[in-house]
Design a protein around this nucleic acid. Structure first.
Length: 279
DNA sequence: AGCCAGGACAAGT
DNA sequence: ACTTGTCATGGC
């Protein structure tokens, strides 16, 4: 990884297999948008502006220190995806999927934001998920500038009333968010402790939140806790796996990286096997 | 104009 | 253990 600073911007090259657009637009995060070739979104308490060109990443308005402390981790740039792809490419399906979507990295997002976002995601579509999250942040997050607000903390959300939630238009998910905020804020579910638990145990803890089932729990584990062996199974993946493997199971060799394999297959199938998703 | 969305839950077999 | 209706709301 090579880093060069020019003016207020910072450029990173030699980062191995990485695709910024795929990574930010693959359904694992909901707060980025592409404007004039620049991806822009709030991460933590910062507005991030980043672009990719010729295999290099340019971070706008970014110091060396900020890149090292935040974005290097956020984009998971220190994980050896080449090796993972090598392991996954042991069969035809996963090789094709990896060839196409192997540039996707699993972001290291804020865990509370992931919990709340994937609760909102259930039985919902991406544009509306983004709208609800946008209204949540604008209404209850901290203002960075006219158009950008932080994601409200679990503590803040634990003090919100049903009337506070009403303008978000989140429907039946409100009671789920309220329970999640309460259990995280009061420590009933201890995020630090979950990091140390075996996968099944951590999943069962997360499912104590009203409205969190297997699929959402696995999304939280994969996208929030960087548990690459967590496998979120939705209707699309179910169809794709059944088509490719005859059942809703990945081959043995892929299990340690089931979550990554799932992301690759999802995007591969969505583009190249569209007929699987048409009824 | 409906249909259905990267689900979860509860109540029925 | 599987199947089904229900839940709010609004993109498309």
């Amino acid at each position: 990884m090579d880093i060069t600073v020019s003016g207020k911007n910072l450029t990173v090259s030699n980062i191995g297999r990485f695709d910024l657009g795929f990574t930010l637009d693959c359904g694992q995060c909901f707060r980025f948008e592409l404007k004039n070739g620049i991806w822009q979104g709030v991460v933590g308490d910062k507005l991030l502006k980043v672009a990719e060109q010729d295999g290099k990443l340019t971070f706008f308005d970014c110091t060396q220190e900020e890149f090292q402390n935040r974005w290097r981790k956020y984009f998971d740039l220190d994980r050896d995806y080449e090796s993972i792809i090598r392991i996954l490419s042991q069969d035809e399906t996963l090789k094709a999927a990896s060839d196409f979507a192997g540039g996707i990295h699993i972001l290291q997002q804020d865990i509370w934001e992931v919990i709340c976002s994937f609760i909102i995601s259930q039985n919902n579509n991406i544009p509306r998920i983004k709208g609800i999250i946008e209204r949540l942040c604008r209404g209850f997050g901290n203002k960075l500038d006219e158009n950008n607000y932080t994601f409200p903390s679990a503590e803040v959300m634990a003090n919100m009333t049903v009337e506070d939630f009403a303008p978000l238009r989140a429907g039946f998910r409100v009671k789920y968010m309220m329970d999640a905020a309460k259990k995280i804020a009061n420590g009933e579910i201890d995020i630090a402790a979950l990091c140390e638990m075996p996968l099944d145990e951590a999943r069962n803890e997360l499912k104590k939140i009203y409205g969190v089932g297997d699929k959402v729990a696995n999304c939280i584990l994969l996208f929030g806790f960087s548990r690459m062996d967590a496998l979120p199974v939705d209707v699309w993946i179910k169809r794709a796996l059944t088509e490719f493997y005859g059942s809703v199971n990945l081959p043995q060799f892929a299990l340690p990286y089931a979550g990554i394999a799932q992301q690759y297959i999802f995007h591969y199938a969505r583009i190249y096997r569209k007929e699987l998703f048409e009824k």
